[in-house]
Amino acid sequence: MSDRSTFWPTPPDWTTARIEMPGVTVTASQGDRGVFLLSGPGKAISELAQAHPGTLLEIAPDRALLVTKPDTALSEGWNASGLAISDLSDAHVRIDIRGPGAPALLALGSPSLALDPKPRAAALAFAGVTLLVEPLPDGARLHVDHPQAAHLWHWLLAATHTAKDQP
């Protein structure tokens, strides 16, 4: 067996990672939010979301991701209100794709986004990875599990640069 360290490109530093190409800007962030996966009755999910301002991404009729302030304390597990809660604050990298070229790039990653750029349910397949899409006024924010974030980033690099620039 041989060492494949050089075959696989190193993951970027998420604090400084940036792709700037004509029409499209891609940036990233990690670890600066309180992120919780909520399962249970829709009413209980809405009530909890209202108590913690931020963004609620709907995934399934009984499942949503709450993205709120960092250092929010919610106890994990199943509680009396019928909600099951998991702390996923360190699970995701958030990648923002913005600009007039964003719709075409997003459609390249997912035929579902070509059908509907503002999906009502957040989970879909993008560049071969299942992730959550949060529409933005000028593009979208992708919430991706950090183990797959490097692949996504390298895919975005390849997709935004012409073939002649690539090895």
Binding site: P9, A127, G128, V129, P147, H151, H154, W155, Q166
Partner: peptide, 14 residues
């Protein structure tokens, strides 16, 4: 785009 390292989504360690 499925060339080289992009052929399949590889998972990395933090």
């Amino acid at each position: 785009l499925s060339r080289g390292p992009l052929q399949s989504p590889l998972r990395r360690l933090a």
